[in-house]
Design a protein around this nucleic acid. Structure first.
Lengths: 112, 112
DNA sequence: TGCCTTAGTTCCAAAATGAAACTTATGGAG
DNA sequence: CTCCATAAGTTTCATTTTGGAACTAAGGCA
């Protein structure tokens, strides 16, 4: 079964996962909730490759979760901000955070 | 950056994703919350391949989220049940469900 | 004996990912 | 004007993961 086929699944959890059920995608959203919005910021914060980031951002925009917004007219540049639909994923991110704090202790320090 | 490196990330969301940040893994957990526990049940319910299912179940057991339990001594057979740690992922699944119900309407019927 | 069930494993082609270099468009230093 | 820097991507290619389908193991049952 292909990922995309999940978008019409009877189960709302499966449908949600068809768009955000991917490590990198959820990390991008975490970064958005932390206030980041630019390509280079996501790269630096999450450690994913530009390749994947570009692909995921495209998906998220198509899904109506992020909006691609021009923030500079000089050299035309774009960043990404949460739509209202995207904002409403906050509770999901928060439950994942809480679970992680409780059940996934840090073993050694990193700086990512 | 590799998936596993995420398990020691400073961010609790990232650490959580290092173990459940994958479509199939979350669908397995959904099935567990629906009361399923056996290999063949997960296969039928989720549509994933046996290959992937076996791999994910191993991960989830190692992570202490599921427990592999022998349920038949005749032909030795095993199934998988949520540990307490696993049970506590319920709120996360519920928020994903709520978001899906609100923002991911079904376009056409499926029978998966 | 021979077929059924159930939890896996194996094999291979196809798709996704990681790493790193390259592109495009413009601003600014000298 | 020339050259370097910034920032958002794109391209290329080797490696990894996935999907699909067949195969194995260990009994049960007729």
């Amino acid at each position: 079964m292909k990922w995309t086929e999940l978008s019409d699944n009877w189960c709302p959890v499966a449908r949600t996962l068809s768009v955000v059920g991917d490590r990198w995608t959820l990390l991008i959203l975490r970064d958005c909730f932390l206030g980041l919005s630019r390509f280079e910021q996501f790269i630096e914060s999450s450690g994913m490759t530009r390749h994947i980031l570009a692909e995921r951002l495209k998906r998220l925009v198509e899904a109506g979760i992020l909006e691609r917004r021009q923030y500079s007219a000089g050299p035309k540049r774009y960043d990404y901000v949460l739509t209202e639909k995207g904002q409403e994923l906050a509770p999901a991110l928060l439950t994942l955070k809480d679970w992680g704090k409780k059940h996934m202790p840090v073993r050694r320090a990193t700086n990512a």
